[in-house]
């Protein structure tokens, strides 16, 4: 464990050096994700100039959900961005041999290698939106509700990570799985809005099949409505653990199926 932490620090330091080298790069990336989010909010704002409530939620509450959903997404984006590269080209170009031949766990090595600062854009927007809307969203603020919501954040991020691990691992069999990651990851659109606006089959799908609803709406239900504290956070924690274990199983089976692309 201490060795892993040491390796992580060394790799992260390399990343930060690269970052200092390309400051404009970092700004472009962060500003891009920031603008991308701002556009989404502008959209919600325009809708709310016409209606007072959306399915029983006020503007501030919708903004709160939207903002919250960006935080787990941003955390995962910050830490595990290299999985995209595994799916898109590392395996196909034979670059994965590097991870297989080193005395570190390959998954850990892949993840530790990249520290994606573009994600700062998402995190800044998420936190700013929460701060902006928290006061007027009529939240049920108790020590328990705040703690349960905060506890849900890392587990929600783990859902993102698990989905990326499982989909990128498909590349071990079919060489390139970028489009699968793209397709499944794209479903995080569902997390931005209250899950209650969807029809029942869609709701089941985004709660249990590709559980992005658990990264946005469920963790904040208790804060918004004061209902079912343990159930909502409980689903997030248990589903994310199950998905993480499943994704590790898929990854490990993929590793044993991996044969170098022979570049």
């Amino acid at each position: 464990m201490r060795r892993a932490w040491k390796i992580y620090r060394l790799l992260a330091a390399q990343n930060l050096k690269r970052l200092m080298e390309y400051k404009v790069d970092f700004l472009t990336g962060a500003v891009s994700f920031l603008i991308d989010q701002a556009v989404g909010i502008a959209f919600i704002f325009i809708i709310f100039t016409q209606i007072p409530q959306l399915s029983g939620f006020t503007f501030e509450q919708i903004v709160f959900i939207y903002g919250f959903s960006q935080i787990p997404k941003g955390i995962d984006h910050l830490l595990t961005d290299n999985l995209w590269c595994v799916g898109y080209f590392i395996v196909r170009q034979g670059g994965f041999d590097k991870y297989m031949t080193r005395p570190i766990n390959p998954l850990f090595h892949v993840i530790a290698e990249t520290f994606q600062v573009d994600a700062i854009g998402e995190l800044v927007v998420g936190i700013a939106l929460i701060c902006y809307s928290a006061g007027s969203a009529g939240l049920y603020v108790t020590p328990l509700s705040v703690i349960l919501t905060i506890v849900a954040v890392p587990f929600a991020a783990l859902i993102y990570t698990s989905i990326k691990i499982a989909t990128s691992a498909i590349a071990f069999w079919i060489k390139s799985s970028g489009f699968i990651i793209q397709m499944v990851y794209g479903m995080n659109e569902f997390a931005k809005y209250p899950t209650t606006i969807y029809s029942v089959p869609v709701r089941v799908f985004v709660t249990f099949m590709i559980p992005f609803a658990l990264t946005g709406y469920y963790p904040v239900v208790y804060l918004l409505t004061g209902e079912n504290p343990l159930l909502n956070t409980g689903i997030v924690v248990s589903v994310s653990i199950v998905f993480f274990i499943l994704s590790l199983l898929i990854w490990n089976r993929g590793l044993s199926a991996y044969e170098s692309a022979g570049a």
Partner: peptide, 21 residues
């Protein structure tokens, strides 16, 4: 194909959002 499906997912989300609106 992945991008087409991605666009479709986006449209489905927006469909429900507009329906709620």
């Amino acid at each position: 194909f992945g991008f087409v499906i991605g666009g479709l997912i986006y449209c489905i989300v927006m469909f429900y959002l507009w329906k709620a609106v």
